[in-house]
């Protein structure tokens, strides 16, 4: 048998290309949850009353120090016990989003902590409500500097999407495994999946560097 079979490669490439759309979908939905929930976690942990901030801090540390795979299984198998049956994709995206929300919340925390005290005092002086303080003054200043850090977690989340294959979501890795077991050839599908990941990650890393440079220029100009 040959090490590498080109006709076979071209035969499976379209299937993998379709599957990569599912991977991208899971990445984008998961990160949307992570970005929003992460901000809520950060604000709750930093500014919430003790009954909220202390359990939240413990919860965040708990999620951060346990494996994502177990969390995916947990969400996937637990909901049916309560009579709610979630599709594998939904449970997987929720687990990804929740896991990365705890990472993002640390990034937001750093961003929020870097806001000068005077900004808060000015909001108080202007008699802004808590909602307007956050929406109009604090968050617009806190987010831009942390965009690159969030971008890194976006890439990290993307690289964790193959874990969804464990609950049979038909993303890249699962498709590659099915192709492999149907044809008894794993070399091509798994290598292609690796290359797809490599290309996407390198492109994303380049994009993040670009954003970082533009942001630095804008911050310096300001």
């Amino acid at each position: 048998m040959k090490f590498w079979d080109w006709p076979f490669t071209f035969e499976i490439l379209p299937m993998l290309a379709w599957a990569s759309l599912v991977t991208l979908e899971a990445t984008i939905l998961g990160f949307a949850i992570a970005a929003v929930l992460g901000l809520a976690f950060a604000i709750g942990r930093m500014f919430g009353p003790a009954w909220l901030s202390v359990p939240l801090a413990g919860f965040i540390e708990f999620i951060r120090s346990t494996p994502l795979l177990i969390q995916i299984f947990f969400l996937f198998f637990v909901f049916p016990e309560f009579g709610i049956s979630l599709p594998a994709m939904t449970a997987g995206v929720m687990a990804l989003g929740l896991h990365y929300a705890t990472y993002c919340s640390e990034v937001y925390r750093a961003g929020l902590a870097n806001i000068a005290r005077g900004q808060w005092e000015a909001c108080t002086a202007l008699n802004l409500t808590a909602f307007h303080t956050f929406r109009d003054v604090i968050i617009p200043q806190a987010i831009p500097p942390i965009v690159p850090a969030l971008g890194n977690y976006f890439v990290a989340l993307f690289k964790d999407t193959p874990l969804l294959s464990a609950i049979a979501v038909l993303e890249l890795m699962q498709t590659a495994k099915i192709i492999g077991s149907d044809n008894f050839r794993y070399t091509e599908p798994i290598t292609i999946v690796g290359l797809i990941f490599l290309i996407f990650s390198l492109a994303a890393a380049g994009l993040i560097r670009l954003v970082e440079m533009r942001l630095n220029r804008r911050i310096r100009r300001a």
């Binding site: 090490f3 193959p162 492999g180 794993y186 798994i190 690796g194 990941f197 990650s201 390198l202 890393a205």
Partner: peptide, 23 residues
């Protein structure tokens, strides 16, 4: 460094598990 940072740990694991035996 770039290959192992740029791809997923699970992909690397499967690659070593399924592809290395072919070599």
């Amino acid at each position: 460094i770039e290959i192992f940072r740029g791809t997923s740990a699970l992909v690397q694991l499967f690659w070593l598990f399924f592809v290395l035996p072919r070599f």
